[in-house]
Design a protein around this nucleic acid. Structure first.
Lengths: 96, 96
DNA sequence: AAGTTATGCAGTAAAATTACTGCATGTCAA
DNA sequence: TTGACATGCAGTAATTTTACTGCATAACTT
């Protein structure tokens, strides 16, 4: 993994709402934007505008941590843990 | 570890220069601010003002990733990997 | 004591992030 | 086909981050 991608992964993890969303997708599997918004509102999260959630999802996607597939008019988001594992492996190899 | 501290750790790791400094301290052991600045200038790093390096070190310290001890007028920085291990353990426990 | 060295503190500017609103577009369902 | 639904796109404002400059302070050295 190149350093740019590593950087995107750490930046993506640097916001609590994005970590919450990532954990949610990991528990629930594929979820649409609306479902993610609903979760974001409930479960202790401060209510964010749908477009704001989209921005967070964009950063997760840029890091390769989520993947998108379209089903008609709904966008399905699923977690890809590969980049997270690689980032952790890098950290472990460097520091531990 | 509380969520705030976790958040500081991920935020601290979200800048490549801070990860470089952390790896440097881990290799070299205790280093002064000036030594860290010298490393920052050399070794491919873009030259940053001393005060800018201090700001990065402040964020690493806020996360508990480095610790300070004064020897006369020089400030000795050393790595503390505890919070990094806890953050990784949290990530592993949550996602993997 | 005076000069040099290592660092701190305050203020500022540019850039990135975070969050918003308003409007547009494509898709499904009645 | 028309209306509701799921999402995109553009523009903006507030906040945070990043990096800077200038000056101040405290500690060694000579």
């Amino acid at each position: 993994m190149d350093e740019d991608r590593i950087d995107f992964v750490f930046k993506a993890l640097a916001h609590p709402e994005r970590r919450r969303i990532l954990a949610f997708l990991h528990r629930q599997g594929e979820q649409s934007l609306f479902e993610i918004c609903a979760f974001s509102h409930a479960d202790g999260g401060q209510p964010l505008a749908r477009q704001t959630v989209t921005q967070h999802l964009d950063m997760l996607e840029r890091a390769g941590l989520i993947e998108i597939s379209w089903k008609g008019r709904t966008k399905a988001h699923s977690v890809n843990l590969g980049p997270l594992r690689e980032a952790i492996a890098r950290a472990v190899g460097t520091y531990l």
